[in-house]
């Protein structure tokens, strides 16, 4: 109490330890930063690893355009776990351990039919786990066997949008429901590339002035 700004904007402005005041718009900035600097942990077990982790990092596709090229082999330095490939019973505990070792906030992307549901290995099979979500919570599913690199980028943009809208400083444990990020049907590779470029430019920029003007503080003399 005492500070006018906190009374004016309950829930948007709050007191933080040490006496400073933090504005809600910081959420947008932090989420924007998080969304655009995802560090993936490459957990490639089989075929999907070639498409999802190697081809995407290489020329022609180039994951760096999405700020996610810093693939780390260590879970301690990563915040996006890309499950690329089949998970078998013997691998399951390792996957769980890797997930638990990652620092929060952490996100999981299940790429390919095997990581979603067991894929072609569902029937008459004694060793394949039917989907990574039997072991760890998954945020984004990317269908395909294996998915195209473009599908991976589409999923990356889906995840970025999710991070920007759902996760925040105030509620960092709140995840939105997992989404299936399937590429729209009937479009060519060139279309996808074009659309991705558009999405990238449109969605990855935060206009701080516009955000401020649209907020509840507009016209109250704070900015």
């Amino acid at each position: 109490m005492g500070l006018k700004i906190i009374d004016d904007f309950p829930g948007v402005a709050m007191k933080v330890p040490g006496g400073s005041v933090m504005l809600g718009v910081m959420d947008a900035v932090i989420n924007w930063a998080r969304a655009n600097s995802l560090w993936p942990l490459s957990f490639g077990t089989s075929c999907c690893a070639i498409e999802m982790l190697m081809a995407t990092g290489a020329p022609h596709q180039d994951m760096a355009r999405f700020g996610a090229e810093v693939a780390r082999p260590s879970p301690r330095q990563a915040d996006l776990l890309v499950v690329a490939g089949t998970i078998v019973k013997r691998m399951a505990p390792t996957l769980r351990t890797l997930y638990e070792q990652m620092a929060e906030p952490r996100y999981v992307m299940a790429t390919g039919a095997c990581a979603i549901s067991g894929g072609p290995f569902i029937y008459n099979n004694y060793s394949v786990v039917r989907g990574a979500d039997e072991i760890i919570p998954v945020d984004v599913y990317v269908p395909g066997c294996p998915p195209r690199p473009e599908a991976f980028f589409y999923a990356l943009l889906t995840l970025q949008r999710m991070i920007r809208s759902g996760d925040s400083l105030k509620s960092r444990h709140v995840h939105k429901r997992p989404v299936m990020s399937a590429l729209p049907a009937g479009i060519t590779v060139a279309d996808i590339q074009e659309e991705l470029r558009d999405l990238l430019e449109r969605d990855s920029a935060v206009d701080v002035e516009k955000e401020a003007a649209a907020g509840p503080w507009a016209g109250k003399g704070y900015c």
Partner: peptide, 23 residues
């Protein structure tokens, strides 16, 4: 290829376990 704690030998024709689903 399998865990040391695995019970049975899966490529035997009469092998069944709880995990397997028939097509």
């Amino acid at each position: 290829l399998l865990d040391d704690s695995w019970v049975g030998h899966p490529l035997r024709k009469d092998y069944r376990d709880d995990h397997m689903i028939e097509r």
